[in-house]
Amino acid sequence: MKPDWTGRTVEAEVGPVAHGGHCVSRVDGRVVFVRHALPGEVVLAEVTEDGGGSFCRADAVRVLRAAPERVEPPCPVAGPGLCGGCDWQHASPAAQRALKADVVAEQLRRLAGLTWPVEVEPLPGGPLRWRTRVRFVAGRDGHAGLRAHRSHRVVPLADCPITAPAAVGGGLRRRWRPGSEIEVTADADARTHVRVVETVRGRERARQHAGGVAHQRAAGRDWRLAAHGFWQVHPGAADTFAAVVGEWARPSRGARVWDLYAGVGLFAAVLAERVGPDGGVLAVESGGRAVSDGQANLADLPQVRWHRGRVERVLRDVGERPEVVVLDPPRKGAGREVVDAIAAGGPERVVYVACDPAALARDVAAFAGHGYRLDRLRAFDAFPMTHHVECLALLTR
């Protein structure tokens, strides 16, 4: 009979950090993934999920021996069974970055066979009030909040310390129809944009409450884009990542380069300035609104050619060999088909922007099969208090 420890409290000596915002411990021969704990601690952990296999999930409900890096969480609902929006509020900012560095290094070692020293760098502004985009959900009483970890239960919030004040005000200062999801964006001008997604008779219906066009600034340009389309959440991220991409890409004047998963063209703009009017930037993006926003924002850069479509499909018919490729794929990564297509183009350098270290490691391994090696890696704490980390990797042929 398979064990079911759900609801059981166990004493656990906490081991190393794992990808996903928890640490690994072993109790009676089973792996227990423990949240709200830190490596080296001894805790009482209440099992929250148990599928009867080799592992279960638990929350540390009492700390018997604390790690030196443990701090008091800045949010009162950042504890066991409460809000699932943050993972590491109980760790100092430096400790959070060290944990994320361990995760990136472990994923590269396990999935790409690389031993690589990793440092996670902070972005400007500190660990709080950085989140400019958030999706709240309204509970049964109409008060907005966030869901508990791995649950549909809504934890009502009076504030969210990692969220920008303008975004907090746009989502938490009024009541909403129960079950509504409230998407809030605070742009570079601190203007708040709100879109409410309601389910009526089983069908979703979106309603815009305030302006649909956000203003952003990055890479020396002003941007206008769909308020709830893709843009970096941390206000310091877009400028930082654009600078690194420009430094590492180094395209020649007149070169042909690719910007894949281009969004509204942040990296395409950087590349276009470097290749000049005699060069060419192929910007590939599947989102129609992002493409139209990108075309409008980069209308002064005719060397940028936009192609709307899935990257793997567009690259089948490109028929050119790029000097440099920049890609910023979704969380699942680029995947082997895209990696194969990029490698077939024979670029000298590939600059990879990744929001998931496991996906990055898998794709780095796929590139290695084509003769590309990891040359440089920088990691940034673009999502303080959470387990998420942004990495930029330079691959050279």
Rank of each mutant, 00 (worst) to 15 (best):
G369V: 12
E198Y: 04
R57P: 00
I182R: 02
D293N: 05
V318S: 07
C23L: 03
G220P: 05
L146R: 03
D293Y: 05
A78L: 13
L172M: 12
A227F: 10
H19N: 14
R224H: 14
Q216N: 01
A354L: 04
Y372P: 03
V10T: 08
P80Y: 09
R133T: 08
R57C: 02
L394R: 10
A269K: 01
L282P: 00
K332G: 10
L301P: 00
W223L: 03
T163R: 02
T6E: 13
V326M: 11
V120C: 09
A112I: 06
A283K: 11
H215D: 07
R274D: 09
L395C: 05
R8D: 07
F241N: 00
T9D: 12
D159W: 15
D278L: 13
D28L: 12
P178T: 11
L301F: 14
H152C: 01
A186Y: 11
G125F: 13
T386A: 07
R331S: 09
Q96W: 03
P122Y: 12
S92V: 03
R310I: 01
R376F: 05
D4N: 15
R26S: 14
V168R: 10
G202C: 10
L377P: 03
A45D: 08
R70G: 02
A148R: 15
G169C: 10
F380S: 01
R97Y: 07
H387V: 04
K2E: 10
E323G: 06
G179V: 07
A366W: 03
R30Y: 06
A105P: 09
T163C: 13
W223Q: 04
D222M: 00
G84P: 00
G145D: 10
R26Y: 13
Q208R: 11
G212C: 13
V353F: 08
G212N: 07
V326R: 01
W223A: 03
H149Q: 09
E204T: 12
C86E: 08
V351N: 05
R177S: 11
V197P: 01
L99W: 14
R224A: 10
P80Q: 13
C86S: 11
A290E: 15
V134E: 04
R256H: 06
A272Q: 09
G263Y: 10
R224Y: 10
W88H: 09
D363Y: 11
G346F: 07
K2R: 15
A341F: 03
A344S: 14
P347S: 07
G179L: 08
V103H: 07
R274G: 00
D340P: 03
V10Q: 09
P16T: 12
A249L: 05
V284F: 06
C391A: 11
S54Y: 10
R147K: 15
H143Q: 11
F55P: 00
L99P: 00
R336M: 01
R256N: 00
